[in-house]
Design a protein around this nucleic acid. Structure first.
Lengths: 213, 213
DNA sequence: GCATGTGAATGCATTCACAGCA
DNA sequence: TGCTGTGAATGCATTCACATGC
């Protein structure tokens, strides 16, 4: 298959994982790798890796494997990571603050360039990175000034839907939502849900002494 | 179908979502609900809801719908949430601290009862909830003293595998891992990966100007 | 010879559509 | 009548197995 869309959703979810493994290999000065080895690092199987990569094009060499550097470039391109993307964090509570200071983002192509919160006590507060907390009233301007493409929502569930609508009105089309609340938004907006308690509940399921009722 | 295992993985992932919606309905004094309405709240379709719930037993009444209170009880049972489960947080950095203080856990059946970190500056530090940060050397004792069943790992990727092995050696069989690193652990241990940057990369994919190469 | 790329086969998950029951 | 519970149908995803090409 070749470089046009129609990549299955579950393949897309695995691409960041492959990218991470390949970057790790790069740092170990490995320059060619086969699907078997990628699979081991990523925790899948070789056939899955080959099928996934084949959706993006033909990057391998038969009899050899994949050239690491070039595969990294292709994956990053495919994921839209040619340039750093700017993020706004909305809700400067503990979680928002933790994410703003998290170095793991810069390393992987993202930069927090604005932080919003409606709490009057916080608006105007200068925080690390030369950022000042702004009110949501200024969201649309903030998006333009800072070239923001993604928003991370860390506000209480009760206000999440309203905030999300403001975010979309500001022109942002990709949202990572930490509020335990489904967001109802236009279909051209992509939302990913990060629900911590739900994750723990899934783990809890596996801890059951296996005969519920 | 009836109350014994063989519930598909993707159904299990949706159960916490249904539970959340049903609790919301409870707070609105709704006492009967049909699959259609649950589907709207959860963002799926009615057939999916009915099929999912049917894996757990026959809880509905034909012609009417589901009794909200009883369905909440059944779902909570099925997810192993009859009693509060105790959690350890490992890594008291910004993210660990944010999670320790996050009220959304108590509300949904979880309680952080211990916090571990190997940084000598942090060990011994008293933090909220009457908790004192402990060294990982004391992990196994801490697990016993506090009846810990789940661990949340928020340490750097480079040390995550080692830490996870200590966690498992301490008898914990469910891990939520925030480190961007695959954990290789015995198959009786359940791991869920919470990789923030990977989520953002998936969003980034959807922002691409759709002809990568 | 060796590892990719890929049709074909299998296995899950979702959706349909209706029998069964309050 | 109205809505559940569920086989049957469809649609995805994964895995197999081998032809293809270095």
């Amino acid at each position: 298959m070749s470089q046009h869309s129609g990549v299955p959703p579950l393949t897309i979810q695995r691409l960041p994982l492959y990218l991470r493994c390949l970057i790790q290999l790069q740092s170990q000065r490995v320059d060619v790798v086969n699907s078997q080895r990628i699979a081991e690092l990523a925790g899948t199987n070789a056939a899955q890796v080959r099928k996934d990569l084949s959706y993006l094009g033909e990057f391998g060499v038969r009899g050899l494997g994949y050239e690491v550097d070039s595969l990294v470039v292709h994956l990053a391109r495919w994921l839209g990571l040619q340039h750093t993307r700017n993020i706004a964090i909305i809700g400067y509570g503990r979680l928002g603050a933790a994410l703003q200071g998290y170095g793991g983002l810069q390393d992987r192509g993202f930069l927090v360039t604005a932080v919003f919160d409606n709490d009057a006590e916080k608006v105007g507060m200068p925080i690390s990175g030369g950022i000042v907390v702004e009110s949501m009233d200024r969201f649309a301007e903030g998006v333009k000034e800072n070239n923001i493409e993604l928003a991370i929502i860390t506000v209480p569930a009760s206000v999440a839907q309203g905030i999300a609508e403001t975010v979309v009105a500001g022109g942002v089309k990709a949202i990572l939502n930490f509020a335990p609340q489904r967001l109802e938004l236009p279909s051209d907006v992509t939302v990913r849900q990060a629900d911590l308690a739900a994750e723990l509940q899934i783990l809890s399921y596996h801890l059951r002494e296996d005969f519920g009722l």
